[in-house]
Amino acid sequence: MSTLSLIDSHCHIVFRNFDADLDEVSQRWREAGVVALLHACVEPSEIPAIRALADRFPEMRYSVGVHPLDTEHWTPDTAALLRRAALDDPRVVAIGELGLDLYRDKNLDEQLAVLRPQLDLAVELDRPVIIHCRDAAEPMLRELQELQARGACPRGVMHCWGGTPEEMEAFLALGFYISFSGTVTFPKAEVTHACARQVPDNRFLVETDCPFLAPVPRRGKRNEPAFVAAVAQRVAELRGQTVEEVAERSTANARQLFALP
């Protein structure tokens, strides 16, 4: 058993490629010291299955939301459905995964139409948001800065961080946390390495985003929550800290942001 206490602040174990061996996967995350996980939601039809996983794994909490690449799942009653799901289960600790992705899709107006009501819902319910932002820092910042000017900007995390140090500073100024995934272990991810060195101690999280983005040396394989230990290890190396320090800080930060057990 690991002596570390880690929180995987963003995972997707509801995906079919965990169906066959989820008991073994959970045993491995417990042995690696993962004391809590936050399961992100990409669209509402996942919610019953994610809730069933939370029943099965008491250390799990989850979010409800619609991913920017899943805008086709947004209907006129989606906001009400998300509100009800969040109010029905105290284990729903965040709204998301929401955001903007201009890497894969260029439908910015459509994505904004799905993003805005979710940001409003997070403020209404006083829940943090989990933000997916890819090749879209400028419009995302503009959106959040306008909300902050009106006193209506939610708190939250920039998950799977891949932006520049300058972009990171702008999100930090809005009160956001920055979460590092397996990409921080990739040798060529120098911009992400710079961010990991620079982020304040009280504002970073670690995550797997599994089953995607397995860290080195498992790159290209299925990722899983136990591998968050490799993310913490690499962040520690970049920051000149011990892995114990990084585990302690990132765990305290995740508990603070998501009110985790």
Rank of each mutant, 00 (worst) to 15 (best):
K221R: 14
A226I: 05
L38S: 06
C153G: 12
C195S: 15
A40N: 13
A214H: 05
N17S: 06
D21M: 08
W29S: 10
R16G: 12
G96H: 07
H159M: 04
L108Y: 03
D88R: 02
R30V: 03
C133P: 01
L82W: 00
N223Q: 04
V129I: 00
Q27S: 15
I131H: 02
N202M: 11
H12K: 01
P48Y: 13
A173E: 10
A136F: 02
S9Q: 06
L69C: 15
A214C: 13
R239H: 14
V228S: 05
D120N: 10
R239A: 13
H73T: 00
L205I: 13
V14W: 06
L260W: 08
I131P: 01
Y177W: 12
K188T: 13
L238E: 10
L22T: 05
Q198E: 14
R91C: 07
D70V: 04
A40L: 10
H193A: 05
Q27D: 14
R155G: 14
I50D: 10
E143F: 09
F227P: 07
H67A: 04
E110Q: 13
A80L: 03
H10P: 04
Q111T: 14
F180M: 08
A229F: 10
V228D: 04
Q118D: 00
C11F: 03
W161E: 06
G240C: 06
V25F: 06
T208E: 10
R203I: 09
P165L: 14
P165K: 04
R61P: 01
A137T: 12
G163F: 04
S179N: 11
A136G: 08
V123F: 09
V123K: 04
D135V: 01
W161A: 08
A52R: 05
G96C: 01
L6C: 09
M140R: 13
F18I: 02
Q148S: 14
T192P: 09
V123S: 08
L4W: 11
Q148P: 09
I50F: 00
D55Q: 13
V123P: 05
A20D: 15
N253S: 07
L260N: 03
S5Q: 15
I130M: 11
H39Y: 10
V42G: 07
S250E: 07
R219E: 10
S2E: 10
M1R: 10
A189Q: 09
I130V: 14
I178G: 05
V235E: 14
L108A: 03
A113W: 02
M168Q: 05
E43Y: 09
R219Q: 12
G151E: 12
T251L: 08
L172M: 13
E167A: 14
H12P: 01
M168W: 02
E110A: 13
L81I: 00
V191S: 15
V34W: 03
A236Q: 07
G182I: 04
H67S: 07
Y177G: 06
F171E: 03
V157W: 04
G151T: 02
Y103S: 12
H73L: 01
D88E: 05
C195Q: 10
L238N: 11
A254R: 00
A36Q: 15
H159N: 02
R56A: 13
H73G: 02
V243D: 06
R28Q: 15
I50S: 03
R234M: 15
F258G: 08
H73I: 00
P68A: 06
E143N: 05
L53E: 00
L115S: 07
D209N: 11
A214F: 03
G182C: 11
R218Q: 14
A36R: 11
V216G: 08
P48C: 07
